[in-house]
Design a protein around this nucleic acid. Structure first.
Length: 470
DNA sequence: CTATGGCACGGATT
DNA sequence: AATCCGTGCCATAG
């Protein structure tokens, strides 16, 4: 039964292909939404009551990680174990250090809900009547904590002015997951930036960037922004870096706490990872566990009543039902194929980049998407889509974009960091000196490039590094 | 004069 | 076809 579904992956209709591509392009959050949408739209789709491991078909109990898949096979003892894991009551590996995370799943019954948590913070600032409105707003938040309703509608419903609602909303936005109840990620960012500005210095230009160029910033179009604003590009990159470290476009997904690891990565803030890599039982001696996370609701099935109904229906309704049935069928197949591709992709990545995963940036292997595509016998663009906008949680708890596995510069950047960390503090190395040292170590690159990497790592130019702390 | 950053080009990657 | 990235050249700051 199970095998038959997988064999069907080969013959691809255009519709199949197109939809698979779309699904592949999505990260966990988007996939979740998509599945919900499909469930609403198509009555032929239902959630399976019986939950099976998507990888090996073993029957799973509630919130369980598949015991078959996580049992290392003797032949694979040194290999990573890659499997698809449903997003149930999943306990993050680093639950010791990763404390408060406000995902929907984590809001167990003992803890108070996010709504209540926020409400408790704001009650003291609000009048009785306003509290009701605040509670209403909090109840209407979507899964990312955004409030997307039209404020004027709410206002007329409660017979108060729009500005009253806005005032309440503003108070809520300043509560602990700062930026909650915003209408969009952009707005959340602005609120957070505002808050930061009250506590300290935030350059004027940052505000402007946040205000108008956020979208481009996320797409890393630094050049364009710097041109339009007429400011140096490094300032834009600086802003990106600053935003990445201090702001969170999806305030409910995770807090940033006071400080994350100072060795922060790229400029984007990542939410729930699409892939979690950890050690079995958290024991570094054990093999690597690579979980490709899928939404728990993706245990989809064709509504059995449908099959029945099709047989009994008359000509006209039958065709209608058929089309739903086909769509549902297709959707499930596409999901399976997405999972299959992701799994195979991660199998390769985790094998090739094992050293990097375990020991850090220095050990990254040069790798291109084309190379993997060839090995897996899929089109390059497939890999591209599978990698883009996905994030991976490493055993040390860091969450990185999946594209980093394909970043050639990462290893060299680590090398540069190391060199600079070891330099004499009273005699900093200039970029060209670094080039010389690197070439001795076998890295061949231009002086100009070192400067760029240095900038990316947020390291100041040599003369400004003189006699600085750390 | 040296070190660094901006801009723009071309080749690689997606 | 579009985008990203390394590099060379030039301007400018130090």
């Amino acid at each position: 039964m199970y095998q038959r579904q997988f064999q069907k992956i080969q013959p691809q209709t255009t519709a199949h292909l197109a939809q698979t591509m779309t699904l592949l392009n999505m990260n966990l959050g988007e996939l979740n939404q998509e599945i919900n949408r499909a469930l609403n739209e198509n009555p032929a789709l239902v959630v399976k009551e019986e939950r099976r491991c998507p990888t090996c078909n073993y029957i799973l109990h509630e919130g369980q990680i598949c015991p078959i898949c996580t049992r290392p096979r003797s032949s694979a003892e040194n290999e990573s174990i890659v499997f698809i894991s449903p997003r149930g009551e999943f306990v993050p590996k680093n639950s010791t250090s990763e404390d408060e995370i406000f995902t929907d799943e984590n809001m167990g019954s003992e803890e108070i809900s996010l709504e209540e948590y926020v409400l408790r913070q704001v009650v003291s600032d609000l009048e009785e009547k306003e509290r009701i409105i605040a509670a209403y707003i909090l109840n209407q938040l979507d899964e990312d904590g955004f409030f997307k309703e039209d404020i004027s509608e709410v206002a007329s419903y409660y017979h108060v002015s729009v500005s009253t609602i806005e005032a309440i909303k503003r108070i809520i936005q300043k509560a602990d997951p700062i930026g909650i109840a915003s209408a969009s990620p952009e707005e959340a960012i602005k609120v957070q930036l505002d808050e930061l500005r009250e506590n300290g210095e935030v350059p004027e230009t940052y505000l402007e960037i946040a205000d108008r160029y956020l979208h481009q910033l996320l797409k890393k179009q630094y050049k364009e922004i710097s041109q339009e604003l007429g400011i140096p590009i490094q300032e834009v990159i600086g802003a990106a870096d600053y935003f990445g470290k201090n702001l969170n476009p999806y305030p409910t997904r995770a807090h940033w706490g006071t400080f994350r690891q100072p060795a922060a990565e790229e400029n984007k803030v990542y939410s729930n990872p699409d892939v979690i890599i950890s050690h079995l039982n958290n024991d570094p001696a054990q093999p690597l566990l690579v979980e490709v996370i899928i939404p728990y609701i993706s245990f989809l099935n064709i509504n059995p009543l449908y099959t029945q109904a099709i047989k009994e229906a008359n000509e006209e309704t039958r065709n209608e039902l058929r089309s739903d049935y086909e769509k549902a069928n297709l959707f499930i197949k596409c999901l399976q194929q997405r999972n299959n591709t992701m799994q195979r992709l991660l199998e390769r990545i985790s094998r090739l980049q094992k050293e990097y995963i375990l020991k850090g940036e220095k050990y990254i292997q040069p790798l291109t998407r084309a190379q993997i595509a060839q090995e897996l016998k899929v089109h390059e663009s497939t890999i591209s889509r599978a990698v883009s906008s996905k994030s991976v949680q490493l055993p040390d708890g860091r969450i990185i974009p999946m594209s980093l596995f394909f970043d050639r510069s990462l290893g060299i950047r680590a090398e540069i960091k190391e060199i600079i960390a070891e330099e004499k503090k009273d005699d900093p190395l200039s970029d060209s000196e670094i080039v010389k040292i690197l070439s001795k170590k076998g890295f061949d690159l231009a002086r100009r490039t070192v400067a760029k990497y240095r900038l990316m790592e947020g390291i100041l130019p040599a003369h400004q590094r003189r006699n600085q702390k750390r």
